[in-house]
């Protein structure tokens, strides 16, 4: 890019920025967001008791709708990759193949490292969970709008910012860990898993708290128009991208670690060497 092109790009960028700023300040008085108080918005972000989305006659939270959308997007992507990309895989990988292999290899390696005794399906589970958490959280950035049952428009939150989604993920992961314990050690595996009874709650609320906090801060920032310049870029990166990565990493790491722990075969007991009795020892010394 030469100097002239750089100059042109800068001018275009400046014009777009000025137009956006003008748009923000001119429309701030008639903003739909200010029809609701910030308290209502915050409360709804936590409890999801105001805005509902109609799903074939069932009223669902926007988080669940986001979950369906994530599944749809990932399904389409997986089908396209399966049909058009995977059959063209080469021994020396290209860029996209490298990314896919890196992703699958990472979760496969994580499962094999943390659970060397039983890891056949665990890699697939943590792969799916990691991809779901990451993609679902990143969906927040796009601000996809849905119409609620009240006729209002809301942007889709992360699926796991919904307490029901977070509970599902925590409890499913716990049950999955227990299934590994049963498969490897039978009843002993169940006992080993039940020892960590707080795990589903801790995993669920860790996810819920982390993703909700990001959503709340983002909502708060967007609520006030004078904060919606530049600040959302930092907030979006801090609370969305980093949370997407960190929470996906934390949950998959925890699941693989606990799965490996409960599926570990019991160690054989060491035989105790009986100490010679005092009398016998005395006789021997005499």
């Amino acid at each position: 890019m030469d100097k002239k092109q750089k100059k042109t790009m800068l001018i275009i960028f400046g014009v777009i920025a000025v137009i956006l700023l003008l748009g923000i300040f001119l429309t701030s008085g008639s903003s739909a967001g200010e029809e609701e108080s910030v308290n209502v918005i915050m409360r709804d972000a936590v409890l999801h008791n105001v805005h509902k989305v109609n799903f074939f006659g069932i009223e669902i939270n926007p988080g669940l709708a986001a979950g369906f959308l994530v599944t749809a997007i990932l399904t389409v992507a997986a089908i396209i990759i399966r049909i058009f990309v995977i059959p063209k895989f080469t021994l020396v990988p290209g860029r996209f193949q490298s990314v896919l292999e890196l992703l699958v290899g990472y979760f496969d390696n994580l499962s094999k490292t943390n659970s060397p005794h039983l890891n056949k399906i665990m890699g697939g589970y943590i792969f799916a969970a990691g991809v779901y958490i990451f993609t679902g959280t990143m969906l927040e950035l796009f601000g996809i709008q849905v119409i609620t049952t009240t006729g209002a428009s809301v942007s889709l939150p992360a699926p796991l910012a919904d307490i029901n989604g977070a509970l599902m993920m925590g409890c499913t992961s716990y049950l999955f860990i227990m299934s590994g314990g049963i498969a490897a050690n039978g009843f002993r595996g169940v006992i080993n898993t039940l020892k960590e009874y707080s795990l589903p709650i801790s995993m669920s609320f860790r996810l819920f708290g982390a993703l909700l906090s990001g959503a709340l801060v983002t909502e708060l920032v967007y609520y006030y128009s004078h904060l919606s310049v530049v600040v959302p870029v930092l907030v979006g990166i801090m609370f969305t991208c980093l949370h997407a990565l960190i929470q996906a990493y934390v949950l998959t790491m925890l699941v693989s670690l606990f799965y490996g722990e409960v599926s570990e075969p019991p160690k054989p007991k060491e035989k105790k060497i009986k100490a010679p009795k005092a009398k016998k020892a005395k006789e021997l010394t005499v």
Binding site: A78, R82, G165
Partner: peptide, 23 residues
């Protein structure tokens, strides 16, 4: 909604496992 989330995730897990992870 928890069961709907679960159903959604299980479908996603199956799809990702069989279409992407395993191949």
């Amino acid at each position: 909604q928890i069961f709907l989330h679960l159903l959604n995730f299980l479908i996603l897990f199956a799809i990702l496992y069989f279409l992407l992870y395993k191949p």
